[in-house]
Design a protein around this nucleic acid. Structure first.
Lengths: 216, 216
DNA sequence: AAAAGAATGTACCAAAAGGTTAATTTGTCA
DNA sequence: TGACAAATTAACCTTTTGGTACATTCTTTT
């Protein structure tokens, strides 16, 4: 695949969307792997079919690229949840499904969580530049509000449940599972990160979520 | 305070421990503020009373310095817990105290959590170099094992409680509260991070911890 | 088909950043 | 007290790194 030294690429197709998508995909991996400051523009470009110039042509600078990567990560994270169709289920079942799904989804997509963790290290400064992300995320809260309202109406939920607190708790569980895996497993062993361990943690989360809302 | 240009410091006291402590304290702040790759050696040294050479003299290189910073952070984190004297309380009360204390302690010492989060971004590679940290952390688990044993004996705890899972859950709650604050509060508002909100979250954690172990 | 503009590749640059060299001062011990 | 080791300072060096200048090729429009 490697071209000879000094040989110049003498012909190509214009493909702005393809180039942007290529860069974004690779940048997602590299940023998730090494953090914002640790990621190297040259490393990103090396794994890409295009040239360094294109990053600056389309994304302005390293921060701009990271902001777009983060945006895409949030979009895909919330897109999954949106497809759950929680309205179709009784409230308690819907909550159980949401919690279990979130756990699995984060587990299967650790890159997104890592990007969010990295963003927190940098005090959320790229997030503040985005206009699309806040809209995306309000959906999950309105979804939970809906769920709680239905639960209260049919008598299965207590009436003092805070949807935001519920979301916070589920997120804490699912995010920690990814973001602190390296140190936790090194200090305390792998037991909770085996398939069996993860199933136990997921069951624990579902139990906790249901206990938070259920009438006593 | 600024000395004139070119003026050379012509007299000083030797103070290895003081210099090391100075560097460690400043490096803790700078690493916690900017991450490992984002932190600048020059910035660390600028906030220090000593000169750049001293970092390399005492800590080898940037990674070595970070490893020591992380070590110190873990030590102070666990030291707090060690002073709780949980043996003096009935198991359920002891667990409630531990959970609430951990929540407050992490909240009051966000730098340590940030350092651990940063270490996770870097896949725990500095942690692997440390020999003292694993020993420190095993204490918290043996403490919880003790607690569970006492609880089972006096009939207040179920007999299938996993101390490690308990620790994992408490950590998830307390760590997420710090590590994801920037993005969470930006997306969903500050409500849970006000004093009142934090009290609710702490109460929630205690409830959850007790529910995990209590006989039904 | 010519011109204009968008997209792309290559070579290069200036500054930043981690790290080192060499000299100077302080402390210790025979 | 004088030599030797430890501690410290200031200046310097090398590589890395994000970013840019400029030329070239593709695409569209007139």
């Amino acid at each position: 695949m490697k071209r000879n030294e000094g040989e110049r690429k003498t012909s190509w197709k214009q493909d702005p969307e393809g180039v942007k998508a290529d860069i974004l995909a690779v940048a997602t991996s590299v940023f998730a792997e090494s953090g914002f400051s640790g990621a190297r523009i040259d490393e990103i470009i090396r794994r890409t079919k295009t040239s360094k110039r294109m990053i600056y042509y389309y994304f302005g600078d390293k921060s701009g690229l990271y902001a777009r990567v983060l945006e895409a990560a949030y979009a895909r994270l919330r897109k999954g949840e949106g497809q759950l169709d929680l309205q179709a289920l009784p409230p308690l079942e819907a909550l159980a499904k949401l919690a279990a799904f979130t756990f699995d989804f984060h587990r299967n997509n650790p890159e997104y969580i890592r990007l969010i963790t990295i963003e927190n290290i940098h005090h959320g400064k790229h997030l503040k530049q985005s206009e699309t992300i806040p809209k995306l995320n309000s959906q999950i809260i309105t979804g939970l509000e809906d769920l709680c309202r239905r639960g209260v109406e049919d008598g299965t939920f207590r009436d003092d449940v805070d949807p935001l607190e519920l979301h916070w708790t589920i997120s804490a569980f699912c995010v920690f599972n990814i973001s602190n895996r390296a140190t936790f497993s090194h200090l305390y062993g792998d037991d909770l990160f085996t398939d069996a361990g993860q199933e136990r943690l997921r069951a624990r989360l579902v139990t906790m979520a249901l206990d938070m809302v259920r009438v006593r």
